[in-house]
């Protein structure tokens, strides 16, 4: 495959890519810290993954193999659209197999297949600020990060337990990175949070509309906030995948009729396929 004529490799011009890579280096040097960057207008709308696309465009090379998932699946419309975009403007090889990819761009999931050294996981991030529901003013949240003033987030968890008996955050569950910065893991289910901890792959986060990048370098400590007597316990549907029978993977609920009928399927379509192939 080759890149489309009329565009630079991977759409962005080289100066922009260099600017983004400099911001990424800073982000890697300060794990969990949000680095402002000159986010560009992209040919996809804000909210569709413009941040992730810019990160991918800046780190991808002609020898890379790209996988794009949305909700864990390669065949969701937005994943298809972004994969087609890179196939068109970068001409790189694409894959649906987690193990074969060198770069995986994701919205809302971390693959079930453990990632390895040398792989890069690029997250699409709608709201990089973990404190935004508690304090909407960015000038103030920046100060809170600078002072590691995170008592307010703990208060929110306290309030959840007081009201509901347990912490009521099920996705975008806040984490402390390297014991210093509070970070939004992007709206992945809390089920995926433990995979971030000491992950061998590099994790990069791009928020296009909010113009922020951040990163978790390989093997970095990522801890989900909790209380000693109310430890972090992510929810998962108590069911098995109707296709591969998995009881460990994260499941999507599919409504089959309007009389309460439903079934559950692996959200990670590649992992489900692997399991079915192995079962032969």
């Amino acid at each position: 495959m080759s890149a489309a004529p009329g565009y630079n490799f991977a759409y962005l011009d080289e100066n922009t890519k260099r600017m983004i890579r400099r911001a990424l280096l800073k982000a890697v040097a300060i794990p969990g810290h949000q680095v402002p960057f000159g986010s560009r207008e992209m040919p996809l709308p804000y909210g569709w993954g413009t941040g992730g696309i810019q990160v991918t465009a800046s780190v991808i090379g002609p020898d890379d193999t790209l996988k794009v998932i949305d909700q864990g699946a390669d065949d969701t419309t937005n994943a298809v659209s972004i994969r087609r975009f890179f196939a068109r403007v970068a001409g790189v090889a694409t894959t649906e197999r987690t193990a074969e990819a060198t770069i995986i761009q994701t919205r809302h999931r971390i693959p079930e297949t453990p990632l390895r050294e040398g792989q890069i996981l690029v997250y699409q991030v709608p709201m990089p600020e973990p404190l935004f529901r508690l304090e909407p003013r960015v000038a103030e949240t920046r100060r809170m990060h600078a002072l590691a003033d995170y008592g307010l987030m703990q208060v929110k968890l306290y309030e959840d337990i007081a009201r509901h008996g347990h912490i009521a955050i099920s996705y975008n569950y806040p984490v402390m990175v390297n014991g210093r910065y509070l970070m939004a893991p992007s709206p992945i289910p809390a089920f995926d949070n433990p995979k971030m901890h000491r992950m061998p792959a590099l994790q990069l986060f791009g928020a296009g509309r909010e113009k922020r990048l951040y990163a978790v370098p390989p093997y970095t400590e990522v801890r989900s906030l909790d209380f000693e007597d109310h430890p972090f316990r992510p929810p998962r549907a108590e069911a098995a995948c109707a296709l591969c029978g998995s009881r460990e993977s994260y499941l999507d609920e599919v409504v089959t009729d309007d009389r309460g009928g439903r079934m559950f399927l692996c959200s990670d379509t590649d992992w489900c396929r692997q399991r079915r192939e192995a079962a032969g």
Partner: peptide, 21 residues
Amino acid sequence: TYKDLPGGQVLGPTFDYTHRL
């Protein structure tokens, strides 16, 4: 909210997945 549901997802005429070129 659901990947699939009775009656199915109908994308219809939408700008959503066009590339803005």
